[in-house]
Amino acid sequence: MSALGHYIEEEGIATVAIGLIRPQIENTHPPRALWVPFELGRPFGPPADPEFQNAVIRAALRMLGEGGGPVRIADFPQTDPRERPDPGWHPPILEAPAADHSPAALADAFVAETARLAAAYDRSVAARARTTLGLSGLPIAEAVDYVARWLRGAAPESPVGDMSAPLALRFAIDDVKAYVLEAALIPGSKPSSRQLGDWLWTKTATGRALFALRRAHLDAADERLKLIAGNFIVPGIRVLAAG
């Protein structure tokens, strides 16, 4: 990000970068950067908190009017209040883990769970007037079915005209995760990302199915599939936690 700032500033436009990883800012020597102590993925801090987000933007834009450069790095002093868990948040559904861990049983449980989440997902989307699904271009039921077919051991053709089968799988998985996590954004609650992630990866059939899909293709002959299994299904921190 800081590198982009360098190129754009060289072209004559003043820039200020929000930076999440301080050593990377320091190593890139951007014209101006504001380091924020928020988790990766949240450069402007907590969701649905305009005042806090404004404070971050103001701190960054203020640097444009200050001297002291080139290369000015400032630190934003506040932490993200949404890192704290919301004790009032509860997952939309709780599944008892199936005793049968065969790929077919995991796939069945995954498909059933996503169907059961439909009402919660619809409520969540209605409350925010928005969804982030759509990377695969597939309706969610088709994305779920495509992921489930891979888990059952098939190597299905791509259901998306201009995507290879592994790429369609990657985006279908992105859509499935977004669907399940958006279903868990219960209107009125303020869950932390850790609460949501703990639920997805340790309590749901979807999480178990995705872990199984990862394991099944880690040594795939198709290099693209192997890459996706190793890097783009389960977050690294969750792989480490699972041991």
Partner: peptide, 9 residues
């Protein structure tokens, strides 16, 4: 996939 998407969602 190693960063939070819930905030954006």
């Amino acid at each position: 996939i190693n960063f939070d998407r819930n905030g954006f969602q």
